[in-house]
């Protein structure tokens, strides 16, 4: 990366402690959370269009409870970073992440969000090569752009991470 004289601040990582700390209620709450994820509409570029497609009739993410896209960080618990994060955008991304209430998860959708994708080359001067430099990422969904099925799988992975088990059959199991 070219020398730009620009410094970035990664997000603060402290999460609020849970209100209740008993194992069984927490398990139930986690299950509820994972089946009703509220993603934040963080569409940045091309990948955002595929993120929209996920919400529409054919792929219908509502089947998995994650269709309530919120424009406000305060109402969401899943940030899908869909697209290229530029240096100019980075402070806003960090701030929005910090404004989300805990617990919160992040999906890095697309090669740009993972590593800079096609825009990471020697001498590049304007993008962040991977959002994991700024915020902790839970699931990476590769592709340029990833197919909507890819993003759905990413959401399944988040559900798996939250509850500790996979809820939906794999394609080969479903076919059998």
């Amino acid at each position: 990366m070219a020398e730009t004289g620009f410094s970035l601040r990664p997000a603060a990582l402290d999460q609020d402690p849970p209100l209740l700390n008993f194992a069984l209620p927490n398990k139930v709450v986690d299950l509820c959370r994972s089946m009703s994820l509220w993603p934040m509409t963080f569409g940045l570029a091309c990948c955002a269009i595929e993120m929209m497609a996920v919400g529409m009739a054919r792929f219908d993410v509502a089947r998995y409870g994650a269709e309530v896209f919120r424009p406000s960080p305060r109402q969401s618990d899943l940030m899908i970073v869909a697209g290229t994060v530029s240096l100019k955008m980075a402070p806003a991304l960090v701030r929005l992440y910090e404004q989300m209430p805990s617990p919160k998860w992040v999906i890095a959708m697309g090669n740009c969000a993972i590593s800079g994708g096609p825009f990471a080359y020697e001498d590049q001067y304007a993008i962040v090569e991977g959002v994991d430099k700024l915020v902790p990422v839970d699931v990476f969904v590769p592709g340029c752009p990833p197919r909507p099925e890819g993003l759905l799988e990413g959401i399944f992975k988040i559900q798996e991470k939250v509850t500790g088990r996979r809820w939906w059959p794999l394609p080969q199991e479903a076919a059998a």
Binding site: A2, E3, T4, G5, L87, K88, Y125
Partner: peptide, 10 residues
Amino acid sequence: LLPPEMELRP
């Protein structure tokens, strides 16, 4: 197009 803090002329 560039961040105001950037000095570079790319």
